[in-house]
Amino acid sequence: MIAALRSEVVKLATTRLWWVLALILIGYVGFTAALLAGLFGALGDQLSAQPNAPQLPPETIAPVVYSTVTAVGYVFPLILGTLAVTSEVRYQTLTPTFLAQPRRGRVLGAKLIVLGVTGALFGVIGLVASLGLGAPILAATGTDARLADSETWALAGRVVLAMALWAIIGVGVGSLIQNQVAAIVSVLAFTQFVEPVLRFGTSIWDWTAAVGRFLPGAASDALVGASIFTSFSGVGGTVRPLEWWQGGLVLLAVAAVVSVIGYVTAWRRDIT
């Protein structure tokens, strides 16, 4: 198993994919965090002066800025995990992979572990961007950056956990949908369109909201405990979002279900 893990590490480290995605993640999260920090810092005073404007409690501003890592960046570890499997199918490297390690379950297990660790690394990289740009901008605009608050660092830990789980889900998705184009289109369509529509649609009634909070994106936001998408919605709703650990369990369950189905169906298929 150690050998299978080492092989997966070498596989990731010897192609450009991981650091290209990490660079885009830094740029995207850094930009979003800086934008939100600047926006809230500048508008916070004006909003609170107007009784009719939606209220954003000042203590939620910093978490919303820092959680951009998962709120907008979770798709990066998801895609990395997916490509880690589908690129092997595309380039037919599953043949040498399974020749070197014929116990295919071990290969999948090693991929899940190595990509999980890499997803966590993506979380750390994303936090460097969101904290590194967000905190100074918040401080400069007179908003509490809450860097001394232990809850901020607990949130950072949950961000890392969420990013790890998304990478693991990606491996599961890749093992299930082995065609690279189909897998990437599915991931983007679900995360960028289907789920946002479902989350908005289910938030209308209480009974649908009770179901909608189990959507993976909603569960991820619940695990992290803050998100630009949840801070403004749910106003007046009686359905509480999931607890952070419940959100984590939902993500873990999604990862387990797609990986097991992928293993049983596509992963054990003939390699021709």
């Binding site: 092997e88 380039y91 043949t95 992979t97």
Partner: peptide
Amino acid sequence: SSFNPGRTARRHLAVYAAAA
């Protein structure tokens, strides 16, 4: 054709040397 075109020959072999 069982190669990731982005890897060098040495790194391609390193992947499977590690696995084995």
